[in-house]
Design a binder for these strands. Structure first.
Length: 957
DNA sequence: TAATGGTAGGGGAGGAAAGATCTAGCGTAG
DNA sequence: TATTGCTACGCTAGATCATTCCTCCCCTAC
């Protein structure tokens, strides 16, 4: 395609107004758009709003005077770049407020790390050491060696700074080599470094993140490149497709903190797309064989409510679709290459879709390869950079293990809504269909992949039907994103934590804490050690869960919670890497217990804030204070967009504060510190115990209250108190009073809050309960269920609805009889095969590759893989199955089957399994506390319904 | 290779182990 | 009277079944 011309050098007065250029006025209209127009005319499609539809190019560029104009843009992607033989550089991609795309090359920032300076190492030694290292590692790997006064982040060892050697390297590849060699003690130098003595290195962090940290750049913030300090690139030196491409040094950058006016978002172009492939019967499409037949696209500007481009590329003719442009092609390769040009011309800043990372992108690329297209795989912003799908592997305790693919589009962000859903929402199924139903309240027309070929071959009308379906699938991700505000939330998350946007879906929680920790450490002149430890298998002691007094409570149960328990413990007791003490230091510095330091319940020593304020507590205070501000601003804000940003912000801040504790306990992490995490949980255990005792001691008949209060349950940071009163408002009053009293006995900012009352309350066991949730005495807010089948995803839907309905009848309607009758009816329906199979589908995550024993979902996944590898569940997916009838005594893992397969082959379902293994126990568990011994007879009456007895009767008696 | 937040806990299912019961096979009496 | 066929019965080892306990696994609470 023709490059978009840069109009630099034009006098400002001659610059065209910065409004959207219309294609027909445009002298440099590309041959491609001409082609499309012709194609469109040939196909006889009419354009209701042709001008708008074809407004693909970005806003034209105002003239830029490099001496007086600053380039102000929102950066979206920062990449490292190094060619062999030249120094490393940073590439920043972004978009201006007017919507012009920017690519800035920043030169002169070099990677570095620190090591401890041995005694006797002075500034004068630096040059010699540099030369020594350079002879060891060859050439000019080491750019500079300097001496600095700093402190290690770990341990309090007095107030004075210590000497550190900063080693700056000339290129990225030498970093691990030089650092590793020093760490392993392979370097000897005079009598300062003895070979064999291992060293600790400091500030080990990825180059791009290092750059961002050192220049106060956080993810997705606004940068200003100062006038006179940059050079625009001439056309023949350009490497990107951006409208503005420039070179500068780091000092030319001014980074705007994302606050106030600078919390705005540039008019980013968002492309949402979806492809359809014509597969063969019964086989999942394979790129080497099966053609791509349609690609639907929606392009929206961030902040606008409707797409300004809606089109669909089709193989073969397709009837007109109102409101969408249809672009038909005879040859598949032409369609693919036209689409690639379309992507380059639309030049999206963000590409979204559903499962684009693991399906659409790899498929398109593989297909283009199979068709031997040389023009297709260039979808990024870097010229001549081949787009490739790479295999990636992600494994985390929180997000599970997953093999996936990543297709880097230099300078363009990607947001695969499937990945967003899998990370942020716990759902039974993540198909676009069920997700749309869940969040948009609508089903999409689901065309099974085996039907697509038929529709494609049947004629222009049925291809039109397919295209409509495809367009809808391209629009749904955009609508999901708008509805769930994930883009805004992710932007806020990257701004709050400082990590690049693309880390949010590709990396874990730790990197966010690391980013914040390094930033704060740098501010306070600390160096973060490069910890090299192997993860330990055995967990440390966590929180207390109070022994529940299980039962049905027909009196209000007040719930008291510690607000942000773990962060507030860390703040209250100044727990931090920088305040951690050992016995030796205490003796050496003559520190005094309780004046200078504290002993935690875990017998660790930490300096008090009077001696040194910890860094983690400061980070947490900032986060929580910022959250308070965001919440306050949210209250006053009326503009819905700004409200969304603020809400996303406060959420990001909360999550961010909570993950600090987890970070210190992550033994497979960057900087674990079990002294901190174990002390935190130990304090927590002490506190919940103390709270329980205090409440039970104070609210007694002996102290003039009507009843003896009783803590019937509590988990980690909460206690459930039965004050004995029957009146809701009285319980709330006592709850608030007790919370305030208990709060007083703890160090600030620890705070116990009265949150809600459960009434009635059904306490089944630890982490399992249900109740009506009241925050005001007039009306209940909702029915709340924790841990039981209604909130679990590994039961069939039937169990969920039956338990939920029974609970509602019992707790809200107070109709136990009705609940019993309802349950009996459902069981009767089940045994008579009257229950829809969709209600009987069980889903479980395929969480690992090597299972020790046989399990229903694992065995089924394996069987499905043998049938059709493409459509079988893969690592990390949820496997849906039903239990089918089979010979007596066969294990459940032999009887699990794919629901679709069951439908297609008319296989009978084992309803008895659903009664015995799915329904009966959960039902018994919720009825038992209310009915007592009658419950078991009730369940017997369930089981001895006539149909059931035939099967069950014999062996039992 | 580099990277991967924590522990507590319920409950389902499979599998091992220990125990109970059944059964095939054998020997023997009659 | 001696030998053989048959049944009944007891015994044993192995098979089978039922139970318990443990572990694995998933998912949730916080």
């Amino acid at each position: 395609m023709a490059p978009i011309p840069l109009e630099a050098g034009q006098p400002r007065s001659q610059a065209p107004p910065p409004k959207r250029r219309k294609l027909k006025d445009q002298a440099d209209a590309t041959s491609f758009t001409e082609t499309l127009r012709k194609l469109k005319d040939q196909a006889g499609t009419t354009q209701p709003d042709a001008d708008n539809q074809l407004a693909w190019p970005r806003p034209s560029l105002p003239a830029i005077h490099t001496d007086t104009d600053a380039i102000v843009f929102q950066q979206i992607d920062i990449e490292e770049h190094q060619e062999v033989g030249s120094p490393p550089a940073i590439r920043i991609y972004g978009v201006t407020a007017q919507g012009n795309s920017v690519c800035a090359h920043v030169h002169g920032f070099l990677p570095y790390f620190y090591i401890h300076a041995p005694r006797g190492f002075t500034s004068a030694t630096c040059r010699d050491f540099q030369n020594h290292l350079n002879t060891l590692f060859g050439g000019r790997a080491i750019q500079n060696v300097q001496l600095f006064s700093k402190k290690s982040l770990i341990n309090y060892s007095g107030t004075e700074d210590v000497a550190f050697i900063k080693i700056t390297l000339a290129d990225l590849r030498s970093v691990p080599k030089v650092r590793g060699s020093l760490e392993r003690g392979e370097v000897g130098f005079r009598d300062l470094f003895t070979p064999g003595d291992s060293l600790l290195s400091y500030e080990n962090i990825a180059y791009t993140l290092r750059f961002m940290i050192d220049h106060n750049i956080v993810g997705m913030n606004w940068l200003e490149i100062l006038p006179g300090q940059y050079k625009l690139r001439q056309e023949n030196h350009r490497v990107s497709l951006a409208q503005i491409e420039l070179d500068c040094e780091p000092s030319a950058l001014f980074s705007h903190p994302p606050e106030g006016d600078w919390s705005k978002i540039a008019p980013l172009r968002i492309l949402s797309f979806d492809i359809e492939c014509a597969g063969r019967k019964g086989v999942f499409p394979e790129a080497s064989v099966d053609p791509v037949i349609q690609i639907a696209n929606m392009v929206t500007r961030q902040g606008e409510s409707a797409p300004f481009i809606k089109n669909v590329f089709t193989l073969n003719t397709c009837s007109h679709i109102v409101g969408s442009q249809v672009l038909s092609f005879d040859k598949e390769i032409d369609m693919l290459e036209a689409w690639a040009r379309f992507v380059q011309e639309v030049d999206p800043d963000v590409v979204i879709g559903y499962n684009i990372a693991n399906f659409d992108f790899p498929y398109l690329l593989d297909r283009a390869k199979a068709l031997k297209s040389t023009k297709f795989p260039y979808l990024g912003r870097e010229r001549g950079m081949r787009t490739e799908a790479k295999d990636t592997h992600f494994s985390s305790k929180a997000y599970g293990t997953r093999d996936s693919k990543n297709t880097e589009l230099q300078g363009r962000l990607q947001l695969d809504l499937l990945q967003v859903m899998q990370r942020d929402y716990k759902l039974r199924s993540y198909s676009l269909n069920s997700v749309s139903y869940e969040f948009l309240g609508e089903q999409k027309e689901d065309v099974h992949h085996s039907l697509i070929t038929e529709l494609q071959n049947a004629g222009p009308e049925s291809r039109r039907r397919l295209a409509v379906y495809c367009l809808k699938d391209a629009y749904l991700p955009q609508r999901l994103m708008d509805r769930l505000m994930c883009f805004i939330n992710y932007i806020e998350m990257s701004r709050v934590t400082g990590v690049p946007f693309n880390y949010l879906l590709s990396r874990g929680q730790q990197i966010k804490v690391v980013s914040q920790l390094f930033r704060k450490a740098r501010e306070d002149n600390y160096l973060v050690p490069a910890y090299k430890g192997e993860g330990s298998d055995d967990p440390y002691e966590g929180a207390t869960v109070l022994e529940p007094k299980a039962g049905y409570y027909d009196k209000p149960i007040a719930t008291l919670d510690f607000a942000s328990l773990y962060p507030s413990i860390m703040m209250a007791h100044n727990l931090c890497y920088t305040t951690l003490l050992d016995k030796k230091t205490i003796e050496r510095l003559n520190l005094v217990l309780d004046r200078d330091y504290v002993v935690t319940p875990n017998n660790n020593y930490f300096a008090k804030a009077s001696l040194r304020k910890g860094l983690l507590p400061t980070v947490l205070e900032n986060l929580l204070a910022a959250r308070k501000r965001a919440k306050a601003d949210l209250k006053n804000e009326t503009d819905p967009f700004k409200r969304a940003v603020l809400d996303g912000r406060q959420l990001a801040l909360k999550i961010s504060a909570n993950s600090v504790y987890g970070f210190t306990g992550a033994t497979v992490g960057k900087l674990p510190c079990l002294e901190i995490s174990m002390s935190v949980t130990a304090y927590g255990r002490q506190m919940i115990e103390q709270t329980k005792n205090q409440v039970e001691k104070k609210y007694t008949i002996a102290n003039g209250y009507d009843h003896d209060a009783e803590v019937i349950y509590g988990d980690t940071d909460s206690v459930m108190v039965k004050f004995g009163v029957a009146d809701l408002s009285k319980a709330m009053e006592l709850g608030a009073q007790a919370a305030a009293e208990v709060s007083q006995t703890f160090i600030k900012p620890i705070k116990l809050e009265f949150e809600k009352v459960y009434f009635p309350y059904l306490l089944i066991s630890k982490k399992r309960y249900a109740g009506l949730y009241w925050t005001k005495p007039e009306i209940h807010d909702k029915m709340d269920t924790k841990g039981i089948e209604t909130v679990r995803r590994d039961n069939c839907r039937l169990v969920q609805t039956v338990i939920d309905t029974c609970l509602r009848k019992m707790l809200i309607d107070r109709d136990v009889r009705g609940a019993e009758d309802y349950a009996k009816n459902v069981i009767s329906d089940l045994l008579q095969n009257k229950i829809d199979m969709s209600q009987l589908v069980i889903t479980k995550a395929l969480a690992k590759t090597d299972y020790a024993g046989k399990q229903a979902h694992v065995e089924l996944a394996e069987r499905m893989r043998k049938r059709d590898a493409g459509s079988a569940p893969s690592l990390g997916d949820r496997v849906a199955y039903v239990i089918i009838k089979a010979s007596k005594g066969s294990a459940a893992y032999e009887r699990s089957e794919d629901p679709i397969y069951v439908l297609e082959n008319n296989i009978p379902i084992d309803t008895k399994y659903y009664l015995e293994n799915q329904l009966s126990k959960p039902l018994l568990r919720i009825f038992e506390p209310i009915l007592g011994s009658k419950a078991s007879s009730l369940c017997e009456s369930f089981f001895f319904s006539p149909l059931f007895r035939i099967d069950k009767g014999r062996g039992g008696e």
